[in-house]
Amino acid sequence: MNRTLSEAGAPLLAFRDVYLRYHTPEQEITALGGVSFEVREGEFLVLLGPSGCGKSTILSLAAGLLSPSAGEVRWKAPEKTGIPRIGYMFQHDGLFPWLTVTDNALLGPRIRREPLPEKKRKVEKLLEQYGLGAFRKSFPRELSGGMRQRAALIRTLASDPGLLLLDEPFSALDYQTRITVSGDIAGIIRREGKTAVMVTHDVAEAISLADRILILSERPSTIRRVLKVDIPERDVPARRASPRFGELFEIIWKEMKSEDGSQPLGGA
């Protein structure tokens, strides 16, 4: 059941004891086995969990693309849809290769049939601001991996999303690029004052970017632990240099390893 949160000061999004079962002819897969958490306005929340545990499923529920089998997902949303506007980002930048960077960014407004000239100005300002001004008319293939992720982020920002959902957005990038690009993207999200939920299975990436980290268990998924990243620095290299980074890494690593033999991904 999905309802709108109306109380003042309430979180932007809340999962209450959410179960989600997938049905295939062969079996019933319980992806989520009672997940509860809240996303507060303006925070950067990271979901960390082993692969196949149901992270993407949680994002689909948060976007309202799936309904829970049991429990409820609530949004604080003034809009008539009952769901805040969602900005999705995926592992593969998801830019449409046949559209220019600007046209990619205008996809949301076009689909909602919003007045384009005004949106176009906004998009051009964002592109300018985040270093893609010269690439307005370029096609995605002419951009580097990092620039493509930035363009994908600007596309979601062009829709004024109330909530950003990032599904392993950096895992297709190589290790070096990933560190800079992830910091870059998280920086833009913070500057724009957006709320974000990001999924990853990279422990170091989680600590580098998050305000809070939710550690998920194996399927059927529940929240094993909630960790506040108590490092005041926001900038990734500074965070990684902090002694607390290693401690958090240790805690999370142990937490994820204690459950099964498999190794979480990472490396600080």
Binding site: F96, W98, I111, R112
Partner: peptide, 26 residues
Amino acid sequence: DREKITLLKSFGAGKGQIFFYAVFPA
């Protein structure tokens, strides 16, 4: 690609728009 379709759905696209903006060109 499923991701392209999910993205359009998250923008509120209907079936016709999904066809026009993603399925056909891709």
